[in-house]
């Protein structure tokens, strides 16, 4: 199947006749990347499924206003990150979980998750990542798992490249220390 470029998809989306077709192309192109980004933040598949649908719903209503000042995929990542963070905040409020404990709860849910297929070391790595503060965790995931460049992460999160490098370095040190001790 031919993969359309972002600008081709956007052009088709702006034409009322091919709007739905263009949106399907966009979903097909980015659904997996967006889903995995959300899943690594929220851990639970059902939560990730809810949020990924919300993200594309927002994209549908906001795409007309997308001015191509940033890349389409960094814009999608930004929406996905914001939606995931607000989902975690809602979860904290709904279940009266203290701010620091939501990641602890996610680590607990990993134990019973049938859709976690990693081995013992992979589980330990995820538990180490879940010990990081939310923003540092997101930075680590984007760099380590998604292989994004610092410039791209900077565009998504609106943070300086220098700050991101320092944050990633500290995250790696913390994770290594956690894994050595467990």
């Amino acid at each position: 199947m031919t993969e359309f470029s972002d600008s081709e998809i956007l052009e088709k989306f702006r034409d009322e006749k091919s709007k739905h077709y263009a949106f399907n192309l966009l979903v097909d192109k980015y659904r997996q990347r967006v889903y995995w980004h959300i899943r690594r933040i929220l851990i639970d598949h059902e939560d990730a499924n809810d949020v990924v649908q919300d993200v594309f719903l927002k994209v549908w209503f906001a795409l007309d206003n997308f001015r191509e000042e940033s890349k389409l995929f960094t814009w999608l990542y930004r929406i996905a990150t914001n939606e995931s963070i607000s989902f975690l905040n809602k979860k904290r409020k709904r279940f009266f979980i203290p701010l620091v404990n939501v990641e602890y709860q996610l680590a607990q849910s990993l134990e019973q998750d049938v859709l976690f297929t990693g081995d013992k070391i992979q589980k330990l790595l995820q538990q180490a990542i879940l010990k990081l503060p939310t923003q540092q965790r997101i930075i680590f995931n984007m760099k380590y798992f998604d292989g994004l460049k610092y410039e791209e992460i900077s565009e998504v999160l609106g943070l300086s490249v220098g700050g991101l490098k320092a944050s990633y370095h500290h995250a790696v040190k913390k994770i290594e220390k956690f894994m050595e001790n467990h």
Partner: peptide, 14 residues
């Protein structure tokens, strides 16, 4: 990637 999704998930997601 240590996470998995139910079979046929991405096809039904669209």
């Amino acid at each position: 990637n240590p996470f998995a999704v139910p079979e046929g998930y991405f096809a039904s997601l669209t």
